[in-house]
Amino acid sequence: MAELDIKDIIREENLVYKKSTLLTDNVMHYCPGCTHGVVHKLVAEVIEEMGIQEQTVGVSPVGCSVFAYNYIDIDWSEAAHGRAPAVATAIKRLMPDKYVFTYQGDGDLASIGAAEILHACNRGEDIVVIFINNAIYGMTGGQMAPTTLVGMPTATCPYGRDISLNGYPLKMTELVAQLPGTCFVTRQSAQSAAAVRKCKKAIRKAFENQNKKKGTSFIEVVATCNSGWKMNPVKANEWMEKHMFPFYPLGDLKDCEKSPAEEYNKYMEE
């Protein structure tokens, strides 16, 4: 048998996958097993596949994904903690033909930025919001987030989240789905090949909604923070499926064909 040369295998016609050209070669600072890397990849792929690199402006948050601009090769505005939806509002209104998205974690979006996200969604800002919910503050070292599950231990609730002390985990996605300004509200995950494919489809749909004046598209990605959770990546995925999914069930909460104004008029008639 003739010896098989590697060059015979790596050929254009044999390619089944390649890295998005919008992903830079910078080494990601994320921990191994972190969900951010996967979602970054999906966002880059969607922007590249839609051919909208030149029309897209991203707004990064404060938190682990503060450096998102180091990995996706588009123009970015790095917002103050929680304020990404306000920053994105102005970018979109001043450049209405652009594709504008925010990428925020649970501390950023659901705690300090709760007012900004609710009002941006309520105004029906024509933006995409990508909300990574891993139920913990990753960057500052694993403190309690508004989305931390009851009983879940963190650095600031070392004996587990106690309802009498900390109140209840906040379901932001259910909250924004109530607002007439949102058109597409979905909860996804990215722990398996099938989940990644579904998540990408949702991100693509959200970006395609833009510039149709339909309102805000909101994608929650239930995610792991294996470092913060103090688990290995495999265990973290199992824990997420067992504990996070029952409280944060996956699927579309809202998918409107109509614009917020039309939806509102319908509501008023009812």
Binding site: V57, A79, R83, A86, V87, A88, T89, L94, M95
Partner: peptide
């Protein structure tokens, strides 16, 4: 006002 000034940040950045 917090949102206002951050809208200004976003707009000025453009």
């Amino acid at each position: 006002e917090v949102a206002s000034i951050n809208m200004v940040y976003g707009g000025a950045g453009c």
